[in-house]
Amino acid sequence: MSKEESKYGFKDKVKAEESLELLKTEEHKYQLLTVRGLLGRAKRVLTLTKAADKIKNIKEAIEVFENWVEANSNSSTKNEKPKHTDEKVDTVPGLGFKDKEAAEKTLKILEGRDPDYQKLAVKGLLGSAKRVLPSTKNEEKIKAIKEAISTLEDFLETFDREERSKQNMAYLSIELVKPCLKDYTDKLALEFVECYDKVAKGNYKHLRTKSPKNDDTVSWDIIRNKKLFKLKDKIKQTGEKLFHSDGKPTETHLKMISWAYSPNVDKLKTYCMSLKSDNKKRSHSSSESNDDSVNEKKSKN
């Protein structure tokens, strides 16, 4: 195995997640080929492994890779658009592990971002830092990297203890967001949706490095999370429901949708399907009306 290949692995879920994080800087085709290669090797190793704990770890790694392939391959279902296979996602700048200061700066940069991304980014940095250590000879550099590792590991320990992953708010697809905002007027939210649609092309990962036109100091993912935490708290405090009796999203829920989030995606999908159905009926009715009008004119003539 080459040094390049050894960066990636499948011994457990953590290693798989680190591999995906490291691959983010590569071209999409290379990412796909590498992950599929890792999957193949993992499945072959699995058939030769006897220890129950190792089998469990490899299966978890396989699941991570299979989920990634499903979300990033060219395949598409009958009712969905193809998954994203566009250009590589820009990495969030400024992340590092050369010393404690760099690690603390990293955590500051990650603050307010999607919890799942925070954890994945830190795990990726930890993996890189631990691989760099054996080849580092300078004692001061070794000490500095070890202090960075300690800082990042403390973050992960707190992250898991406080179960911050539960705070992650998965993005709605742009196809679900847009139909709900026909008469929406919030300028900032609409700018976010436009960026998500036109610039990010529906790939939420691009929003980590994109900002509003009049403020490039904060990225869209951070703005989104801040807005959504306030809206979720409002629903908790007021007890406002998510949907009206006719299935239409309530005012606060609609604001959440404008930031590409819903606590009840299945019911929202049903509502969007009803919108499409109503639009088809109106279109069909209008077409019939036009036909009747034409026939009436012909009969008069």
Rank of each mutant, 00 (worst) to 15 (best):
K108D: 12
K178R: 15
E163L: 11
K119L: 09
E139P: 10
H206E: 13
E194S: 15
L133T: 15
D114Q: 07
K105L: 13
A129L: 06
R131H: 14
A189D: 08
G112A: 06
L172M: 11
N138M: 05
K201S: 14
D154I: 03
Y117D: 06
E147M: 11
F192H: 02
Y184D: 11
D116M: 07
K143M: 02
G112H: 01
L181N: 01
R208F: 13
E140I: 08
Y184P: 11
I174M: 04
E194D: 14
K178W: 03
T158D: 12
L126D: 09
V177L: 07
R113A: 08
E191V: 00
D116H: 03
G124Q: 01
N203S: 00
D183E: 10
L176M: 13
E147D: 15
V199A: 04
K130L: 15
E139V: 12
E139W: 02
A121G: 02
K143S: 12
N168A: 10
I145N: 05
V199G: 00
E153Y: 05
V193W: 12
V132C: 02
I142A: 01
K213P: 04
S135C: 01
E191T: 01
L107K: 03
C180Y: 07
L125H: 00
S211N: 08
T158C: 00
L176S: 00
A129M: 09
I142G: 00
K201C: 08
T158S: 03
K205F: 14
S211E: 04
S173Y: 08
Q118D: 04
K213N: 04
K182C: 05
Y171R: 11
G202M: 07
P212V: 02
V132R: 14
E191W: 03
R161C: 01
K182Q: 10
K187E: 14
E104S: 06
K198D: 15
D186G: 11
E163A: 11
I145Q: 03
F159T: 05
D154A: 07
D186Q: 05
G127M: 08
